[in-house]
């Protein structure tokens, strides 16, 4: 995915991507976000995730580590935070050619569901999306408000990845041990 660099709007560490997605929607940002998990040691979370937005509504998702786009890129990004997030603002015209790449598209509410874990935010994102974005995505991908089937299978797919979950647990344990010394309990 090729994008002009744009104007840096915000750059910071966040623990909950929900807050970033809510902020982008609230401010109707047009541009893109770059996400980098701070805890990529044991997880194959290396690389960065990129999500583009038009008026605060997600359009494309891409992961540089796995070179996957669309919903699979969101699965690659779904590792525990904190994350370093940078937001860049662009003119709508600068996104036009990138947004033509249909295979990288995600349903508008899907990042809020899968990265933000907030179905209510997903609902408001879908409400803010233009009609053609909702109908274009077809059935079964949670583009339809209230259709939780696709979301549930994404959760189940995550839970079927025993290796990834073991890595999350192992990472948490080693972090907990390190912190115990740092915090001097």
């Amino acid at each position: 995915m090729k994008l002009p660099r744009g104007r840096l709007d915000k750059s910071r560490v966040v623990t909950d991507l929900r807050d970033t997605l809510a902020d982008v929607l609230d401010r109707e940002l047009t541009g893109y976000a770059v996400f980098e998990s701070q805890e990529t040691l044991l997880l194959d979370g290396e690389g960065r995730g990129v999500i583009t937005f038009t008026d605060g509504v997600p359009v494309l998702a891409y992961h540089t580590g796995t070179d996957r786009g669309g919903p699979p890129a969101l699965a690659d990004l779904a590792v525990p935070g904190p994350y370093h997030v940078s937001l860049y603002a662009l003119d709508a015209a600068d996104l036009e050619s990138a947004h033509g790449a249909g295979e990288l598209q995600v349903p508008p509410g899907m990042p809020a569901e899968r990265l933000g874990g907030d179905p209510a935010l997903a609902d408001s994102t879908r409400r803010a999306a233009p009609d053609e974005r909702l109908s274009a995505m077809g059935d079964g991908d949670a583009a339809v408000p209230g259709d939780g089937t696709a979301e549930q299978s994404a959760v189940e797919a995550f839970l079927d990845d025993a290796e990834k979950i073991e890595a999350i647990k192992q990472q948490a344990r080693s972090e907990a041990r390190e912190r115990a010394q740092e915090w001097d309990f």
């Binding site: 899968r114 979301e151 995550f158 999350i168």
Partner: peptide, 16 residues
């Protein structure tokens, strides 16, 4: 919540 981030953060809490 039955979402990916809530479950993975919950796992982290358990391991701590």
């Amino acid at each position: 919540q039955p979402t990916i981030p809530a479950i993975s953060d919950g796992l982290k809490v358990q391991e701590y």
